[in-house]
Nucleic acid binder design. Structure first.
Length: 432
DNA sequence: TCTGGGGTCCTAGGACCC
DNA sequence: TCTGGGGTCCTAGGACCC
């Protein structure tokens, strides 16, 4: 059922270009026009690439396999600096939010917008202004797509990004003709919600472009694949099914890490698990939730076929809904003891809390009263950590020396969030 | 030697109930 | 002898996203 114009509602997608790389370039303008990549935790794999680097580094590439190429091509390499990216992201989002009627922060570098009852070409003009403002005030280059549905706004943004010269970084998909042309151009795996697996199955059925999906009715797609693909098809035809979403509390919160080295010692893993739990509990408190279950897992390096493999996981119920670092850590260590097997080289571990409820109206277990002391202690810990840094207050189970560290060989300074890292500008005496 | 982390939703299949 | 069928809940695993 094709939806015809005039479209009353338009969705916009504002998408930062190569966001992490753009954040690094902000303080290193000399890197403009040069190949730059940002690596994941532990300097493991490539998670952001400048346009120049995209030519020879695939997304997700293991960094150690590309060291020679980085050297040859003169690629500037950065360890991920999430404190910096998070801070720039929230500045960017507040600025965007102040310039549009409705916005949904979709990810660290993307926001959906909604425009109702407005003239699309006026909106386009405003989006070009917004793009300039963000570039000027935050320093981050944006791409913006506008269309009658969220899925099409993604398509529009992709076109704007692919043809910056012709679009000026903003593209409006506002007529059936333009939409059809876009869908004939767009590869099926580039449709939002269609991943590698689904794309492979679709291509085997002769669906190579987004437009080819229209040969199947939503009912057929639902039957052969799933409801989601049926919805995607309808959205691609201009029928809006996905509205802006308001921020919801997380249903699960996790802290997991790959270790820089293999660990065989129980005490070392236990210390990390306690730290992961403390971090998780702090995230829990920040969103005002309490958990009913905690999952702990440990695993060996799955890429090492020459070593014996083991993956252990266990989920334990809390005696009552809790956000206490102390109680959750106790449970986590109890779980770790259950899954621990001597003789393996552990490479990764993590903690996940689930079945979250609002902290102030948690389900009470009549037989195990919540420990009120923790309830008063935790906010104190959070305030002190916020004020003096995360390493100040630790639980008994954490190593006060913090003997372990992520590998972060190429970390940039925390320019915007740590006073000692703020850039100093020297102004000549006779300036201005 | 070195291969990320944090989320969401959907589906299939088993258990159980009436 | 006849061996139903629908609903619900739960879980594991798949698929997807950035």
């Amino acid at each position: 059922m094709k939806v015809h114009p005039p479209y009353r509602v338009f969705y916009g997608l504002a998408d930062a270009n190569n966001f992490y790389v753009s954040c690094e370039r902000l303080f290193r303008p000399d890197l403009e026009g040069r190949p730059v990549v940002v690596l994941s935790n532990n300097d493991g794999c490539v998670i952001s690439r400048s346009n120049e680097a995209k030519e020879f580094v695939p997304m997700g590439a293991p960094a150690f396999q590309y060291e020679d190429i980085f050297r040859e091509k003169g690629v500037e390499v950065f360890s991920a600096n999430f404190a910096l990216y998070g801070d720039l992201s929230s500045r960017m989002m507040s600025l965007i939010g102040s310039r549009v009627p409705e916005m949904e922060v979709y990810s660290i570098d993307e926001a959906f917008m909604k425009f109702e009852g407005m003239d699309p070409s006026d909106t386009e003009v405003r989006m070009r202004e917004l793009r300039r403002t963000v570039r000027k005030q935050i320093g981050i280059p944006l791409t913006i797509g506008l269309a009658p549905t969220k899925t099409l706004a993604k398509v529009a943004a992709r076109i704007a990004k692919k043809f910056p010269d012709r679009t000026g970084g903003v593209y409006l998909l506002d007529t059936p003709e333009k939409i059809e042309k876009a869908l004939r151009w767009l590869d099926i795996e580039d449709v939002h919600g269609i991943g590698k697996r689904l794309a492979a199955r679709l291509r085997r059925m002769g669906v190579h472009k987004a437009a080819d999906l229209m040969r199947f009715s939503p009912r057929q797609l639902r039957k052969k694949f799933n409801v989601n693909l049926a919805r995607i098809r309808r959205e691609l035809e201009g029928e809006s099914l996905y509205d802006l979403e308001m921020p919801q509390p997380r249903k699960r919160i996790a802290t997991t890490r790959t270790f820089a080295e293999n660990i065989t010692d129980f005490e070392e893993v236990r210390e990390r698990i306690v730290t992961f739990t403390a971090v998780t509990a702090a995230k829990l408190r920040r969103q005002g939730s309490a958990a009913n279950f905690i999952t702990v897992f440990i695993r060996t390096n799955r890429h090492r076929e020459d070593l014996p493999q083991y993956h252990g996981a266990v989920t334990l119920p809390a005696p009552y809904s809790t956000d206490s670092s102390i109680l959750l850590s106790r449970l986590a260590v109890e779980g770790l003891r259950k899954i621990w097997r001597d003789g393996y080289a552990y490479k990764k571990a993590g903690v996940i809390v689930s079945e979250l409820v609002p902290a102030n109206q948690g389900f009470m277990n009549l037989f195990v009263p919540p420990d009120d002391r923790h309830r008063r202690l935790m906010p104190v810990i959070d305030r002190l950590n916020a004020k003096y840094g995360h390493d100040l207050l630790k639980l008994g189970g954490q190593d006060p020396q913090r003997t372990w560290k992520m590998k972060q060989a190429k970390l940039s300074p925390a320019y915007t969030t740590r006073l000692s890292d703020v850039i100093r500008v020297r102004v000549p005496r006779n300036f201005a």
